[in-house]
Design a protein around this nucleic acid. Sequence first.
DNA 1: ACGGATTTGTTCGTATGTATA
DNA 2: CTATACATACGAACAAATCCG
Lengths: 242, 242
Amino acid sequence: MYIEDYQKSRYLVIIDKLKEEIDRGNLTAGERLPSETELAKNFKVSRSTVREALRALEQENIVTKKHGIGTFINQKPLYSNGIEELFSVTDLIQRKGYTPGTKLIFSDYIIPNKHEKQKLSLKDNEKILLVKRIRTSNGEPLVYCIDKVPQYLLPNECKLDRESIFDFLEAKVNIKIDYATTSIGTTSYLPEISDALKCDMDTPLLVLKQSHYDENDQLVLYSINYFRSDNFNFHVFRKRLK
Amino acid sequence: MYIEDYQKSRYLVIIDKLKEEIDRGNLTAGERLPSETELAKNFKVSRSTVREALRALEQENIVTKKHGIGTFINQKPLYSNGIEELFSVTDLIQRKGYTPGTKLIFSDYIIPNKHEKQKLSLKDNEKILLVKRIRTSNGEPLVYCIDKVPQYLLPNECKLDRESIFDFLEAKVNIKIDYATTSIGTTSYLPEISDALKCDMDTPLLVLKQSHYDENDQLVLYSINYFRSDNFNFHVFRKRLK
DNA sequence: ACGGATTTGTTCGTATGTATA
DNA sequence: CTATACATACGAACAAATCCG
C-alpha cells in the first residue's frame, strides 16, 4: 500500500510536480507561480517545505524569486553544454546524440616529472598511468585527451585504454569523481595533437586542464583535453553576485 | 548607537564570521566545523539560522556537508577567475590588482544587420549602439570588446566610450545586468583584432560571446570579447550532478 | 503620497527521520 | 545498539519589498 512513495522527501516530490507542470506547458516561461502559501495549501505541506522546493528550483535556474512580488518561471531554459556541470567526454558526445569512439595513442605507467608530481601530489617512487587517446564523435576526431592517474589507485596492469575513465573508476575501483577545477585556454597548432585531430595550422585548439577530485577531496585524475574548436563551443551560464 | 549592524540578517553575519575564521586560519582546509547545534549555541541563534548560513557557504563551495558526519572546510581554495560569476571586464582587471584602461576604436549608432537584429530581438527601425574598444590592463592590451546595446535603452547621444558599460547602465539608466549566457570558443588570427591586441599570427584568441540579461529577463547587451589567451586563462569549478 | 493587502525573506522552536561512527 | 550529526518537516511570527486603489 504505502510502498509507492516510500522514502522520498516531500520537497523532492514537489520539485518533480512543478517540473512536470512546466514540461507539460501548464506553466510557461515568464509566468508567475502561485504564492508560496497557496502552493503549500495545494500540496498540503507547510510553507517551509514549499520554500525548500523553490529554493532548489532557483538553484537550477528554473525559477527566479522576487521579494514582495512572486516566483517566476525563467525565460531561459538553457541546458546546452553547461560547462559548470562536470561530465566525461563520453557523456558529452552521447548527449549530442553522436556515437563516441576512441583511438588509443599511448597507455603505460611512467615516472612522473616534477610538474605531474606536484599536480597529483605524489610521493617519491609513485608512478602514474599516462593515457593519450583521440576521442571521436561519429568517427570524426573531436578531442585529444591526455589523462594521468596515480598508479596506486589502480588495479595491476590496468591500461584504461577503451572505456570512459570516469566509468571505470566508478565501476571497478569505487572512486566517484565529484568535481573538478578547470582552466580554459587556447593553444595554436601543435604538431602531435593538431595532426591527430586532422586540423590545419590555422585552427586553434581549446584547452581544458582539469584536476578531478573524488568525494573525499582526493585528487584522482589530472587531464588535459584539446578540443577542435572550429566546430565546438562550450556554454556557461554566468550569474551576477550580490 | 544601533546604527551599526542595522538591517543585516543574522545568517549573513554568521557567514561573515565563519569566512573570517577561515581567512584568519582558525579554521583550515579539511577541518570539521562544530556541529550545527553547537554553532547555534555559540552564535546564540537557532539551528535553522545556522543551517541557512551553512547552506550558502556550501553553495559557494566553501564547505561541504556530509550527512551524519559533519560540515567540512573545503580543500580547494577555488575561484581565481571563476567564470560562472558574471563580472565586467573592468572588474576582472581590477580584481587581479591591475589598472584597467580603455582605447576607443569605434562608437556610433548603426542599423543592425539580420544577425544582430535577431540576437537583440529588435523591431524594424530600431538602431543599436555599436562600441568597439580595446581594454588594457596596466597599459597592456588584454581584450578587444565589441558591445551592442539597443538604442531605445540609452539616453540621447550617449556614446559609452569611457566607462564600464555595466556601471553606466546601472548608474544612469537603472538597468542592472543580472546574468548572461556565454559561449566560449577560439579563433585564429584576425587582422583587425589581433593587430590591435598586438599579438602575432600564432597567438589564438579566446572568444566569449555573451547575451546579457537584466532582472526582468530583457536582453540588454550583446557582446563579443576577444581575449589574448597567451597570458590569460579562465577558471571554472565543475561539479558532477546526481 | 499614503495605507493596506499580498508576497517573499528571516528567525524561532520543536519533532522526527536517516546516516555514520 | 547508541550517541551524534545532518536532513526533513511543521507551524508561527514578524520584517521587508512591492503593488494597487
